[in-house]
Design a protein around this nucleic acid. Sequence first.
DNA 1: CGGGTTATTAATCATATGATCAAATCATTT
DNA 2: AAATGATTTGATCATATGATTAATAACCCG
Lengths: 217, 217
Amino acid sequence: MVRQASAQRRTLLQAAIAVFARKGLKGATIRDIGREAGANSALIYYYFEDKEALFTEAIRFVMQEFFERLAAGRRAFRGAEDRLAYLVDSLFGYFAEFPERVQLMAHALLAESAQLAVAASSFLRTGSATPLLVLQEGISRRELRAMHPLHAWLSIVGLCVFSLMTRDIGARLRPEADPTFPALGLADRRREILALLVNGLASRGGKKVRGRRSAKK
Amino acid sequence: MVRQASAQRRTLLQAAIAVFARKGLKGATIRDIGREAGANSALIYYYFEDKEALFTEAIRFVMQEFFERLAAGRRAFRGAEDRLAYLVDSLFGYFAEFPERVQLMAHALLAESAQLAVAASSFLRTGSATPLLVLQEGISRRELRAMHPLHAWLSIVGLCVFSLMTRDIGARLRPEADPTFPALGLADRRREILALLVNGLASRGGKKVRGRRSAKK
DNA sequence: CGGGTTATTAATCATATGATCAAATCATTT
DNA sequence: AAATGATTTGATCATATGATTAATAACCCG
């Protein structure tokens, strides 16, 4: 029957986000999600069509929530670095608050790209995809190199998501294989990614370093 | 009994790589893999411990093969851009030849990081992780900014893998949502990623543009 | 050829899973 | 309180799955 808005429905959706994030669409089971929600798993079929539809709604929810936050925090930008910092910080801030949701998006991206594309295109159509607008603005103002904003955005997301997802890989490698590997916190990673986005990996040494180099600290 | 090297064993491993790449560890079934290999699925248990061990061997195989190619193609570098181009081109070239293997690594990176860490650390220990050596060399020579080479490598992998994995998402979005979205080929993506790695996203306009800007074309 | 080892298969097991449904509970209105 | 409709649950079904096993086929060496 697929009921709309209700507290129970929201609870189930949040449980689904958590479990899908941990195990992926295939790895998560209906019973897992029911248990996480503290409800009978059969209830899921009262509120949602099936497991796939629940997954689709989960990624749509996360995407919408993220775009809303981004739009809410939008401001005037002082230049390229400020503009890029806004995007990177939004990603890092969102995922610092809801770490499991990055993982959900990563699963969607990798294994269920069809569903992700469906969800994403609805945001593109309604013009509510803030990151693309912000990047487009930066390109128009010649702050950023000329390129399609979607490519720029995917590069930023790729860097951040990869950095966030590989934190535990680094942690696992560190002790045995490479004692020199530094245990960087989120703030350090944010700084490195921002430096990469603004200036690239190449050293600007020899010739004079640009003033825009360091954000803070 | 877990037999070592044999033609059949290799066939099964290749089939596993293909199926795991398509469906992930959880999504792939033993029967899928058997069918792909044209063999009885029970045979898998003759050559491999279980499904997880097969997955681990699959990512180890791909990682080793990729590192070997990288080591074979290693050369003297003329500077930061040349050095970064070598790494990006190695990734893109490997993907062009074996797209499914890159997808397998993406699955391992984002969804099965525990197994990836096990496989990766053995390469780190033996010092055969060429990309880290190449990056370390570039940093020592002040071509590249000072940072831990593993972070630099993960950034490069993140950019490339994300770009490669989102190609079909872009293709799905393009027609309906955004008619301006350009259908970039691999060569264009390579160029954009390299430009980002060398110079960042920020425009060098106003102040004079660096000579190292454009790779070719 | 023949005996013994290795490789491969069909059949099967136990369990997990997505989904359904009828019954039970709860809420709301009369 | 009775009646009606919405919500929740335990039981159940059919199927898919990872894994095992016993039997068969292929291979090899004398």
